[in-house]
Design a protein around this nucleic acid. Sequence first.
RNA 1: CGGAGCGUAGCGCAGCCUGGUAGCGCACCUGCUUCGGGAGCAGGGGGUCGGAGGUUCGAAUCCUCUCGCUCCGACCA
Length: 446
Amino acid sequence: MRLSRYFLPVLKENPAEAQIVSHRYMLRAGMIKQQAAGIYSWLPLGFKVLKRIEQIVHEEQIRAGHIPLLMPTLQPADLWRESGRYDDYGQEMLRIKDRHERDMLFGPTNEEMITDIFRAHVNSYKELPLTLYHIQWKFRDEVRPRFGVMRGREFLMKDGYNFDLTKEDALHAYNRHMVSYLRTYERMGLTAIPMRAASGPIGGDNTHEFLVLASTGESEVFYDAKVPELKLGDRAVDYDNRAEVAAICEEFTTLYARTDETHDEAAFNAIPEERRKVGRGIEVGQIFYFGTKYSESMGATVVTAEGNRVPVEMGSHGIGVSRLLGALIEANHDDKGIIWPEGVTPFHCGIVNLKQGDAGTDAACEGLYKALVAAGLDPLYDDRDERAGAKFATMDLIGLPWRITVGPKGLGKGVVELTSRRTGESVEMSAEDAVARIVEIYAAHR
RNA sequence: CGGAGCGUAGCGCAGCCUGGUAGCGCACCUGCUUCGGGAGCAGGGGGUCGGAGGUUCGAAUCCUCUCGCUCCGACCA
């Protein structure tokens, strides 16, 4: 993309309403625009990152054997009356009447609807196990939306639901989700720690939340210093291998890591003192096993091999997709702006032309741009007629991890400059080598 | 839902107390100069002061109501 033709409305000054760094930078970098309390338009740059995150979530869900579908944002109230949650959910649920005075609601989650789909089409144990998920906009009419996309009323969430014959099968689905989530967050360059959590209104007796450590997090967390060091890495995982998946879960959940809701002072104090950490975390996902809570109330049953009709075992699992943008920025920024991890960056690298209009630098930049595109990459070429300082400031703000700087001095020596946004280090090299280096960097992020 | 604030140009703000021609910075447009870390000079455009009532000769300013937004707390992916 050539910046002169893009839509990137950056702000020089901090908008008054933004209190935390991720919200400020998302507004300043022209990623979002608030339309009402907790409701945002996603401008091109923000939309691009949102789509990249969504893509990673999809890929990892499919890798774990889960099946995508799409359910609507608006739901009929009757489904929720069946489960009893229409009355339980309270003011957070946005209730709407259609022209025929039918009670509708903007879905805050989809347990009822997925159960309805299941019971309409699945009758035999032979069709299990089954895990369906979607990535769809949710609405929860929060009393007090805040922190930009971190606590919006409208938000994009991946929510998945597993249907199994036995509790043992359902617990495997639970474990499978835990591992796939670990992998999902790692691909985005985030360390998200699974912590035993208290079950909320969704219900269930087995649940973990995934928290990204950040000083602006809304939850207080207590953990062993060794926990954030655990990495899944690029080990191959067979998601159908129960023992292997369970072993990974054990690896990641044995050491102490709890939110304030489930904190156990005695267990925490059993950790060597120098490893006891207290901090704050942003919740970016949660997994639940809840058994037959919905299948019983809504009649989602299958016939077993013995010919008995039994309610299915279920769980639900969510990742806050839009919230992840906030969490990513909270975890990756400096005083100049965002620093995107390679896995989610909106553009792979920036090209800064220091002397727009100069035949030599223009031609060199065009050559670089075309070479990068030909290599399958997505560069952002700042071809505006701006001064160097303004171009650098924009690049730093929007946080592209790599920048190629092209100026007359360097070209005189036959070099361009490759700069890391994260370390600030610059290396001079030929344009060809710079392209090769960028290609190499992103080859590791496929 | 309790408590506290704020709505004046696209953004950030002053003006309000003490009523009297609506201002500043950034951004935007034109010209000239400049050009490796958010340039300088000159000129220019843009606002029914959130909305509705009221007081007054006169309201951004005072009064009443209302809508919107933000922050602290309780609640939540």
